[in-house]
Amino acid sequence: MTGVRNVTFQFDKRLLVLIGRGVLVLLAAMLVAAPWIFDLADLQVITELLCLLVLAVMWNLLAGYADIVTIGQHGFVGIGCYAFYAFAVFTDVGPYAAILLAGLTTLVFALPAMIVVFRLRAAYLAVGTWVLAEVMMLGAGKIDAFGAGLGISLPVSVVREFGGNIAERFTTIYWMALILAVTAMAATYFLMRSATGIGLTAMRDNEEAAGAVGVNLFRARVICFLWAAPFLGLAGALITLQKLRIAPAASFSIIDWTVYIIFIVVIGGVGSFEGPVIGTFVFFLIREYLQSWGVWHFIVLGGVSIAMVLIEPRGIWGLLRRVVPGDLIPVSHRPPRGS
């Protein structure tokens, strides 16, 4: 009798994983169909959501696994914005190549940034990355070719390359954002499944113990840092395409590209693959529905994240995981069968 009940109980719980995966598949299907089922305003919001999702996945990789708790992520996003502008306007590589080169440029900037970042730990690292990002912003504001402190708009000729009218252009940008988000998620998924990834997961749980079983902590951190940089730059390029201009304060916005991202990851669940996805959706729900409240919606955001940390440091996914028996996006490893 108890045996039977046990089986049904197990079955119910596993069903939760299937339901969760079903929801993810449904959301993915909606994203693919989005240009046909949403109007232009919604499509813009979803494009923004996808860009923030990319930033959240990368911040989670750094802070949640590699113990690089950066608050200077906006520095690399800003570099991506400016590099995209530079390649699109000052060279004739073409607008699409300019996006890819923005990612590459960010990677190049990440190399010397490591000299600072990898000399610092914990709180010093957080402050160090922040200062580095602010220096990048101030530096960008000194360059006259980029409109100095005021910034500069993308020339119409560049904008037109992505579509003759607004609808066409935003659909193109949307597809690029979707491709970027899918690439970022898929690539990071494979990273987490690799030998490096299982080491990173161990580092998340106990860094010293990970080092004691052979995980090269230094190498793992470097890989994550250089992994995140180009994706941040690519996101910056797409963000610039949406805003149609670059400016130090907006392109290097600590609120938009770092503070919101930390909120997203913390509320969704730091150190899990599902966390950034859930966090991004929750963030947009709060933002879209509470925007009319003005300043109050920030206070709600802050309150929710503090409450979340106190209730369950592993975020919404940590709460759900108490009931759901498995990961929705399984990065874990199973033993070989048949023994």
Partner: peptide, 22 residues
Amino acid sequence: RPFHQMTVYENVLVAAVHGSGN
């Protein structure tokens, strides 16, 4: 010092992978 969120199998797998470079 277990890797507390990972399964027992994964705990040992981390060492088997990184101890040998496999």
